[in-house]
């Protein structure tokens, strides 16, 4: 479970997250909505542990452990992983090497096969993120998360800039990563399988396209650094589409 209590965060001396309460129980996936600049990326970066995001109040608890002051790599080790909106290029570090790094020391992964799943084998020999297009970055990030296999997956706009054909690929892959794909199982009922879900997800979206591919348990609306509304994700999405963020925020009050 991820639990965030009364979190305040400063970036470069400015308070960018004013009041965040959030709870993602084991197995749940939440959708994070909010206008540009509302602090969505900042929230994900804070959960991941980026030191420039200074927590000035409140705490973050993951799997029962207070991780508010834990460095990034220890959070990764505890099972938090992130798909970035704008990851940096690292010259001389090949994508294939990056996939191996994600898999960790003890674990062997079949890089080629994994890359095949997101149509990315042709990119394995390239420097990570070097000249990747918007859509390619998304697939590269997904590939890395597949290798990393975290229990809490943070997705920062996984579908922005993705073409129609790749959208379904990305949508279904995210569904699989979050254990939200449905397959006929001769032994277990679907209800049992849902109960056994361990993976948690927090997905930022503007377009809502991702909701066509995965089910989500809850939607959250972030507005000017505050978590305002928590409800059915489709309902929030409809509300934003029809009356706009500002009106939608009022529904929470």
């Amino acid at each position: 479970m991820l639990l965030i209590e009364d979190l305040k965060v400063e970036l470069a001396g400015k308070e960018i997250l004013k009041h965040i309460d959030l709870e993602i129980p084991q197995g749940e996936t939440h959708i994070l909505f909010g206008p540009n600049g509302s602090g969505k990326t900042s929230l994900l970066m804070t959960i991941m542990g980026y030191p420039q995001y200074k927590v000035t109040h409140g705490k973050i608890v993951f799997k029962g452990q207070d991780i508010t002051n834990l460095p990034v790599n220890e959070r990764a080790r505890l099972g938090i992983g992130m798909s970035y909106q704008r990851p940096p290029t690292i010259h001389g570090v090949k994508t294939s090497q990056m996939v191996k790094i994600c898999a960790g020391k003890g674990r062997e992964v079949d890089v080629e096969t994994l890359a095949g799943k997101v149509n990315f084998t042709d990119f394995l020999g390239r420097d990570i993120n070097d000249g990747f297009s918007g859509g390619e970055i998304k697939r590269s990030e997904l590939l890395q998360l597949m290798a990393q296999d975290p229990t809490l997956l943070l997705f920062d706009e996984p579908e922005s800039g993705v073409d129609l054909e790749n959208m379904s690929l990305i949508g279904t892959t995210i569904g699989q990563l979050l254990q939200r794909d449905f397959q006929i199982d001769p032994v277990k009922s679907q209800k049992e399988k849902i109960k056994e879900r361990k993976r948690m997800g927090l997905i930022i979206t503007h377009t809502g396209f991702i909701l066509d591919y995965i089910t989500a348990d809850k939607g959250q609306l972030l507005f000017k650094g505050e978590m305002t509304c928590s409800s059915n994700p489709r309902e929030i999405f409809r509300c934003i589409s029809e009356v706009g963020y500002e009106e939608c925020v009022k529904c929470a009050i």
């Binding site: 790599n73 959070r75 992983g81 010259h91 570090v93 790094i101 890395q144």
Partner: peptide, 21 residues
């Protein structure tokens, strides 16, 4: 930090970048 978020320690991340360089 990007490499650390993939599980490397700070030293490992630095050395990976240096080798890449």
């Amino acid at each position: 930090l990007y490499l650390m978020s993939r599980g490397l320690s700070e030293d490992e991340a630095t050395s990976t970048i240096v080798r890449g360089f």
